[in-house]
Amino acid sequence: MIRRYGEPVLNGQAYRHRPGVYAVLLRGHDILVTHQLEPRDEFQLPGGGVDAGEHPLRALHREVFEETGWRMTRPRRLGAFRRFVFMPDYDMWAEKLCHIYLGHPVRPHGPPMEEGHTAIWMPLREAAERLGNEGDRAFVRRLAGRRR
């Protein structure tokens, strides 16, 4: 069973299945996050949706690069969680199935390509409290607890 985080499911609301991949990129005791101003000012794990026909690992590398400008290596799946949310960028209600990977940052190749994103190194414990959604925070808290 995959754990659900966030808002409850709305009765009568149709949700579109939206698989996504997200990376926890560690460097020492810091994590690479992306800061997005719109549609909501928040810190996020870099990642996003898997396009139709796209392999999830290919999507992970693409999304990390687009949102941070960094390349990554050695992704290892940590787990997954579900969220039921309205996605204003796509004007749709979605059941997001979020797959979380632990990866290693290689090096930056420039600024983020995705408009409105800023790549920021943040202490792991701070990220565990400041990330924008409960599922991301739960995975980062688990990692922070292991790194004591």
Rank of each mutant, 00 (worst) to 15 (best):
D30S: 09
Q44C: 09
R82E: 15
G110T: 10
R130E: 12
R4S: 12
L32V: 02
L37V: 12
R130M: 08
E115P: 13
A14I: 09
R146G: 05
R146Q: 14
R4C: 07
T73R: 14
I2D: 12
D91V: 05
M1H: 12
L143N: 06
L26C: 06
V33I: 15
T68Y: 03
A128V: 04
R4Q: 14
P56E: 00
P108I: 03
A144K: 10
F86D: 12
F81K: 01
P19W: 12
E134G: 00
V140A: 00
A23E: 14
E38R: 14
P39I: 13
R82F: 09
N11I: 15
F86T: 11
E38T: 08
K96C: 09
I2H: 14
E126V: 09
R58D: 15
W93F: 15
V85L: 13
V85N: 11
R125A: 12
R76Y: 02
L45F: 08
D51C: 00
F139T: 00
E134K: 11
Y5R: 01
A23Q: 09
F86W: 13
R148H: 10
R27H: 10
Y15H: 01
E114D: 03
N11G: 11
P112D: 06
W121T: 08
Y5G: 01
L97V: 15
P8Y: 15
L124N: 04
M72T: 13
G28M: 03
H117W: 01
G79F: 09
P75C: 06
I100E: 05
R82L: 13
K96Q: 15
A138N: 08
G49K: 04
R62K: 08
R40P: 02
R146K: 02
E115I: 14
D51H: 00
A23G: 10
D41F: 11
V9M: 14
W70T: 03
E63Q: 12
F81D: 04
I120S: 04
Y22V: 01
E95I: 05
D136H: 07
H117Y: 05
H29N: 13
A52Q: 04
A94C: 10
